[in-house]
């Protein structure tokens, strides 16, 4: 089975995103001995080609265009279709990010290939890639595969182990011209939200608050802890519905589904919809006054206590440790 695998890499602040490095590892596994080609668009594409090669790409194709400086559905789909080979079976891997989610169904529809989104792991059985993905926000899982040779997958950040950087790897780098026209959307402005800009779905550490935080100000100690840990702040539906925070922070079956290395749940009772959205985090710490709270069923470390007493102390201890070392 031929699997020339392509990876559309994404950049943030001029560097390749972790999820794209993870996508390269997934691509390497799917490709076997077949080539892996990285694709990068935009003004920082060329300078990031080596990173893609050092993490698993055999070659990198780059393109820049005024219309690729800012993501639009039209711009990226036109460019991608010009870069991908015609009439040749391929697998395309993209991160399950804002861009990946927006772009992948359009590209799959256009090319007429199958799409499997939000995969968390993969295996290759008799040359055929089989992808595992959560369903019901992680209450269950399914394994899916393509019925045809070609296909497109999006991978969830933080789940596929990246390949170590190998500076001895070299590969072909080609810069191509693309024609882009008739962009139907104009991005007028991007407003950065509170929370430091770390996206919840990609955050390695999340400190989340529920109804137990009692007010918008109640998130303050959680923000301080998240700051010390270099993590992002999340929330349960209860906290969002109560108006303590923005819906953009909501974690759960409605809201974001997250799998960070560390999830600290403070004042969250653990409704089934919330548990679905976070219970596959690697390490879960629960802090709650109620020892019977369902959040403790999924916690690796259980602290029965008042978050307003405990959390500031955790922050203080971590800060002290940091200043010692």
């Amino acid at each position: 089975m031929t699997h020339h695998v392509f990876v559309l890499g994404e950049m943030k602040d001029g560097t390749v995103r972790s999820v794209s490095i993870e996508a390269l590892a997934a691509a390497r596994k799917i490709a076997g001995n077949h080539p892996v080609t990285g694709i990068l668009f935009g003004e920082h594409a060329n300078e990031n080609s080596d990173i893609m090669i050092q993490h698993g790409a055999d070659e990198v194709i780059t393109a820049d265009h005024q219309a690729l400086r800012q993501y639009t559905t039209d711009g990226y789909s036109q460019a991608l279709l010009q870069v991908l080979p015609d009439n040749q079976p391929i697998v395309l891997v993209i991160g399950h990010t804002a861009i990946g989610k927006d772009l992948s169904p359009r590209v799959a529809a256009k090319i007429g290939m199958g799409l499997i989104t939000d995969i968390v792991s993969l295996e290759v059985v008799n040359g055929k890639p089989i992808f595992t993905r959560p369903i019901y926000a992680g209450k269950a899982f399914e394994k899916k595969t393509f019925k045809e040779t070609s296909g497109l997958v999006t991978i969830r950040p933080n789940n596929v182990e990246p390949l170590p950087k190998d500076q001895s790897r070299h590969g072909k780098k080609s810069h191509v011209q693309v024609n882009i026209k008739d962009i139907r959307t104009v991005v007028k402005d991007v407003m950065k939200k509170a929370g430091g800009g770390t996206d919840l779905s990609e955050a390695k550490i999340i400190v989340a608050g529920g109804r137990g935080v009692k007010s918008a100000e109640g998130f303050k100690p959680l923000e301080e802890l998240a700051d010390v840990l270099g993590g992002a702040v999340g929330a349960s539906r209860g906290a969002c519905d109560a108006g303590y925070c923005d819906y953009a922070l909501q974690i759960g079956q409605t809201g974001k589904v997250v799998t960070p290395d560390l999830y600290i749940a403070a004042g969250i009772s653990g409704a089934i919809q919330h548990l679905a959205g976070m219970s596959h985090s690697r390490v879960i710490v629960a802090i709650n006054k109620d020892p019977e709270a369902p959040i403790f069923d999924v916690a690796d470390y259980k602290i029965v206590g008042d978050l307003f007493d405990v959390v500031p102390h955790i922050t203080k201890h971590l800060k002290d440790d940091a200043s010692e070392s």
């Binding site: 990010t97 804002a98 139907r184 959307t185 104009v186 991005v187 007028k188 402005d189 991007v190 407003m191 950065k192 939200k193 929370g195 800009g197 770390t198 996206d199 919840l200 779905s201 990609e202 953009a248 922070l249």
Partner: peptide, 9 residues
């Protein structure tokens, strides 16, 4: 991803 993009179309 948590930011707000303003779009005209």
């Amino acid at each position: 991803e948590g930011n707000v993009e303003k779009i005209e179309t």
